[in-house]
Amino acid sequence: MKYVIVGTGNISHTYLQALQALPASEAVGFISRSKTTEATPGALPYWPTLAAVDRPYDAVIVTTPNGLHHHSAIEAARLGKHILVEKPLDISQAAMDAMISAAQQHHVTLAVSYQRRTNPDNQAIKALLEQNAFGRIYAADLSCRFWRDEAYYASADYRGGYAIDGGGVFMQQASHNIDNYVWLFGLPESLQGELDTFAHQIEAEDHGAVVLRYANGMIGTLVASTCARPGYPPRLEVSSEKGTFTLLNDCISEWYIDGIDNPASSVPPAPDGGASTPNVSDSSRHEAIITDFEQAINQGTTPLADGSDARRATELILRIYHCRAREV
């Protein structure tokens, strides 16, 4: 498939790298209102809008700031182009509804790059949960203790604000991990939490802790931070009727489950995984999500993280922002 990448920020380089690694995929250019040809990643052509693109393409990859995703996605749908959106889908219920509706109306595929779902260990845990192999799940505790310096937030006016970024660490840095959590366990029945801003000069939170209560009785916790210098790999600890296991940066690191062999793959955890920097040097998981996206389109199936399913991560984050210290 041929792609136009909307946006030329840091993450667009990762998508370009991923497309270059896939022999049947190709980036034909970028949408940018500010870049020159020389400054465009890969020195590919650029256009100010999708309507101005003058060469054939099949799909767009949206890499603009969070709160702008719906603009490009809806425009692409109206042009009959498939849409892969960098996480999150968007930052409001209304924007997400409009994106999903536009994709359905124009019969195009809408997916989100929640590429942690492609990790073999996450997929193994998902399959076991669907089989009820662990029995009753008692607790699922997710820790996203990351670090971002002040220079990161100062690099763009919108960073760490609500209008464009959609919030702080929960909407931005921990969004991938929260999506994986919701993918595994679903949405809670109720929640309560505390958020605050400690180490950075930003509008939104840079640290928070939330307790989740599920209809089946499970108690979950989410801790997300960009104050935890130097930054630590995300960690998910699960306690169940059959025992306990731990995922460290999406790879099984501890397994004490009765009667079930450890399904850990031989793939070691990535050394950083976004814990201390926004830069993504390894594009392999983006390659996997693009491959899944193309297979879904070609086979008429649902992608791994389609728009309707991927929106649940934003739904949970918005509930967290509205709860603060009261139950909702």
Rank of each mutant, 00 (worst) to 15 (best):
T118H: 14
A94R: 15
I61S: 03
Y46K: 15
L68G: 03
R117I: 12
A94E: 05
A102G: 03
N132Q: 13
R33E: 02
A39D: 07
K81R: 14
R78Y: 05
T37I: 06
S113F: 05
N119P: 00
K126R: 09
H71M: 12
A95C: 06
R117G: 02
M99R: 09
S34T: 14
Q115K: 14
A76M: 08
L50P: 00
Q93K: 14
H107W: 02
H82A: 02
P48W: 04
R33T: 07
A52V: 01
K126M: 09
L129H: 08
S34V: 07
I61Y: 03
R78H: 12
H106M: 05
A59D: 03
K81C: 04
I61V: 09
A102T: 00
P48L: 06
M96H: 05
R33Q: 11
N66C: 13
M96T: 00
I61G: 02
I100V: 13
W47K: 15
A111G: 10
V53R: 15
V53S: 12
E86A: 07
L89D: 07
L89I: 11
V108L: 07
Y46V: 01
G80N: 11
N132K: 15
G67Y: 07
A73Q: 12
L84F: 00
A77G: 06
Y46L: 13
P88N: 04
S101V: 08
S101M: 11
R78S: 02
A51I: 00
A77E: 00
I83S: 01
G80P: 10
N132R: 15
T63H: 12
T37M: 07
A52K: 13
G135N: 12
S32C: 10
L89C: 06
T63S: 13
V62F: 03
L79D: 05
P120N: 07
A98M: 08
V62L: 01
A127F: 02
A59L: 10
T36L: 06
A111H: 12
S72K: 11
A98L: 08
A133K: 15
T37K: 15
A103D: 07
Y57V: 00
P65Y: 05
T37W: 13
H106C: 02
V62R: 10
K35F: 00
D121F: 11
F30E: 03
T63K: 14
P65C: 06
L79P: 01
H82K: 12
S32G: 11
K81T: 02
N66L: 07
I91R: 05
T63C: 15
L84G: 00
P120T: 09
V112L: 07
S34A: 09
A98C: 04
V28E: 05
A95P: 14
I91V: 15
G135P: 08
T49F: 02
A73Y: 10
G42N: 08
F30P: 14
S32L: 06
K87A: 04
K81E: 05
A127Q: 13
H69T: 01
G135W: 14
A59V: 06
P41D: 01
H82Q: 09
K35N: 10
I61D: 03
T40L: 08
T40R: 15
E38L: 14
T64Q: 12
V60G: 01
A76N: 04
Q104T: 06
G135F: 14
R55D: 00
P65N: 08
I74E: 13
L89Q: 08
P120D: 02
